[in-house]
């Protein structure tokens, strides 16, 4: 197992705002896990917590250590904003080589690190000429390649991508996603967490999906299964409101806004927007039910497709 998280809680604003609530997940080698949900559901916070950028307020995260190399960070991270996530005054090759220099305790990358960075970059379609450029001289797709190369260069066990293609053109999105599929396919010892609001991307790339709503996991399972036969009405709503589903106009558009995380309802957080809500849903918080299939589960009093 690459990573195990148990009962993660995360609060902001001195505890007034809960962004992650009792969140647990496991990640195995070779797995690609997608985390989907609307804006503000806590998926980016989850990514930051899993990467160790923020400490959870409760719960624990266990990561397997890469064979005795305690200095190895073991995590690669790709951010949504491809420009802001690159050092403004470093050339592309320096960006890619920097994590190697850190790992090896060097103050700056040497010719050795540069050669390794160039070797990896060339497999990603970044020419030597592009590697000489500064971030603002590259296109969005090229920048995101540099970001991915930087995340991969130390060969981390866990790669976390926080909406890596959301800011890119559709055609460039496909190139980047193909690149990711290739990179992950090559090495079965690593796992990948893919944060996205785009279900098309999820379908294309991932094995397993977690659906998040207001800081909680409301449904999980194999990507094809979850999207084809959603159990939680929220998942169904997400799947149906995807305009690129290719089956005519969205039939059930998402209604309303999620409730304020400052004033969390007693019962199911989704009940106020749900057309299948029972009286119980407004009073009692649903438990996460695990199905017979491993990894499949949902938290709903009145699930679909039963």
């Amino acid at each position: 197992m690459i990573l195990e998280a148990r009962g993660i809680q995360k609060f902001y604003e001195q505890g007034r705002l809960q962004v992650l609530r009792d969140l647990s997940l496991e990640l195995h080698a070779g797995e690609i896990l997608a985390v989907v949900g609307e804006s503000g559901c806590g998926k980016s916070t989850l990514a930051r917590v899993l990467a160790g950028l923020e400490a959870p307020d409760a719960g624990e995260i266990r990561r397997s250590q890469a064979g005795g190399m305690s200095k190895h960070p073991g995590v690669g991270f790709v951010f949504q904003d491809s420009l802001a996530s690159l050092h403004p005054r470093r050339r592309a090759w320096q960006q890619i080589a920097e994590p190697l220099a850190i790992l090896r305790g060097l103050w700056r990358p040497t010719a050795q690190e540069r050669a390794e960075a160039e070797r990896l970059a060339s497999t990603m379609g970044l020419s030597a000429e592009l590697l000489q450029r500064y971030p603002h001289e590259l296109s969005g797709g090229q920048r995101q390649r540099v970001n991915i190369a930087r995340a991969f260069i130390t060969d981390p066990q866990l790669l976390i991508l926080d909406e890596p293609v959301s800011a890119l053109d559709v055609s460039v999105q496909a190139q980047i996603l193909n690149l990711l599929v290739d990179l992950v396919g090559q090495r079965t010892s690593r796992a990948l967490v893919f944060i996205s609001h785009d279900l098309n991307v999820v379908r294309f790339l991932t094995d397993r999906v977690l659906v998040m709503y207001l800081g909680e996991i409301v449904e999980s399972g194999q990507a094809s299964e979850v999207l084809r036969r959603p159990r939680h009405p929220y998942t169904a709503m997400l799947a149906m409101s995807d305009p690129e589903r290719g089956e005519g106009p969205p039939t059930r558009v998402a209604q309303g806004e999620p409730p304020s995380p400052y004033d969390r309802p007693n019962g199911c957080a989704f009940a106020s927007r749900c057309d299948r809500a029972l009286p119980k849903c407004h009073q009692e918080r649903p438990r996460f039910v695990e199905a017979k299939t491993a990894g499949r589960g949902w938290s709903c009093h009145n699930p679909l497709n039963t």
């Binding site: 960070p73 991270f77 951010f79 904003d81 690159l86 005054r89 850190i102 970001n147």
Partner: peptide, 26 residues
């Protein structure tokens, strides 16, 4: 607050390295 600094932290850079190599040059 910018993500390139978070990227350096994830890569394992310590405080002195981040201040001297990431923050001050910018």
């Amino acid at each position: 607050s910018k993500p390139y600094v978070a990227a350096a932290r994830i890569a394992g850079a310590g405080g002195f390295r981040i201040v001297l190599r990431e923050l001050l040059p910018n």
